[in-house]
Design a protein around this nucleic acid. Structure first.
Lengths: 257, 257
DNA sequence: ACCAGATATCTGGTTAACCAGTTATGTCCT
DNA sequence: AGGACATAACTGGTTAACCAGATATCTGGT
């Protein structure tokens, strides 16, 4: 251990960062609702007692995350939390703009199947009832005939949370949003698909409640596989350098096949 | 389909974004090496023919990603690609600051094991030789007795790349860096650990070369499990609400055991 | 009472000048 | 020559003023 480590580098905090953090907290805590207009940059500057430049760069940072959106000469309005931050990060850093659906879907499958397995292994009583409740809510919405996208997501997110790994849960949530965005054009959930999805969900639910790790993983695999078949994967597959074979997408887990 | 969709929204491109993109390209393409100093903001401004403010915000964005670092009154120097972008994103958006090592490690295991399986399934001849070469380089470094952290990472990254899923590869790389950062304090790789790691790596390598999906996954599982035992996991486990049991960390994949 | 049009005010966007430092250059003495 | 010191040039950081466009307010006529 070096002695120099005793003296930790002290650095003047970035004012714009502090401002951004305050505003972000206000948004995620619901003090500022989506659609609301932020005070003008000048007013924020005087309120925070910093220069307008700092407020400005803070707002730019928040806009990067998609938390707010500023319209020239009109003001900046709150947008709410979303995954545009990850999108930007992927496109800016990895040079991966517009990830093919096959790639995102495959990654999600890996994460969700393992989340289901972990949930079967670790879910508390409380977790289990929450999962079951979201499943029931999903069923009611489907019976009513309405679109049930958000209820579907809620079910998956409940499982992810029950996995006990918050980072895994966060990634799953982000990827789910991404999948929804990518599949919106494909107008999924047609015909009898919702009913099928409910049955597949039920299999996952029962396996988790029973604490059957392998069954949970298999049930989730089946569910996501049949979801994939909804979208025209053949049309995407060549974008991934021809190396992602359609056949390969089904079995990235379990010796089962 | 709505008619309004025919007219796609056209928006004046953000100048700072274009500048940032150019600089980023220069860095990732190796035209600008880490340690080099960027031209001054004023010179960049006149070269790009934009206002200094745009150059300024572009540099701020790049600094957010950790691609460059600017020292007041001295200039901004190139840092290179890293994972600080995702770190910031996690802490700023998900509120996940300072993830426990157990959580990150578990997620990495999920990703890496499946990457190994996909690699065994899809690796081209070229991929296979690249993996073998990194393994050999790692071996030479270990024999020489020096620290072989980066060679170790190179081996894992080569496998991740061979998975054919660039997003999966990117996440693995990011998490690997995170693990390294978190374990730097634990001073890992002590005693005979490097030799063991080489043998475990060899098992993964052979399985991939043989195209044996199940064996690749199992070998990678074994490797990461024994890596985990290096660090004092018991001391971390309670940070995750007591729900992440040590026993559970070993088997999140395969019905094996 | 109501509406059209002019006007004042406020918005974010942009620029240029200035500040406090650092670094490079030049100069003078030894 | 060589080194210490003063000076000039340049760095990113910050501020204030100005710009064009959008909005709100007021005014006058109908």
């Amino acid at each position: 251990m070096e002695k120099t480590n005793l003296f930790k580098a002290v650095r003047t905090p970035d004012l714009s960062d502090l401002v951004a953090r305050q505003i972000r907290t206000l948004v995620v805590d619901g003090k500022l609702l989506p659609g609301e207009k932020l005070p003008s940059e000048r007013e924020l500057a005087s309120r925070f007692e910093v220069g307008r430049g700092h407020v400005r760069s803070a707002i730019q940072k928040l806009e990067f995350y998609g938390l707010v959106k500023t319209y020239p000469q009109r003001g900046t309005i709150v947008e709410g939390v979303s995954n545009v931050g990850l999108r930007r990060l992927c496109s800016d850093m990895l040079g991966l703009e517009e990830m093919p659906l096959a790639v995102v879907s495959e990654l999600r499958k890996i994460l969700e199947v393992n989340a289901a397995r972990l949930a079967a292994q670790r879910a508390s009583q409380e977790d289990a009832t929450r999962i079951r409740r979201t499943w029931e809510a999903h069923g009611h919405k489907v019976e009513a005939g309405g679109p049930a996208m958000s209820e579907d997501s809620a079910f998956h997110n409940a499982i992810a949370k029950a996995s006990g790994n918050p980072m895994l849960a966060a990634f799953i949530q982000i990827l789910s949003e991404e999948i929804i965005n990518l599949t919106i054009d494909y107008d999924a959930c047609r015909d009898s698909r919702p009913a099928e999805a409910m049955k597949e969900h039920e299999a996952v639910l029962l396996a988790i409640e029973a604490g059957d790790v392998a069954a949970a993983g298999q049930a989730m695999t089946r569910h996501l596989d049949s979801s994939d078949q909804q979208y025209g994967f053949e049309s995407i597959v060549d974008e991934v350098k021809g190396r992602v074979s359609v056949a390969g997408l089904g079995v990235q887990l379990q010796g089962s096949e």
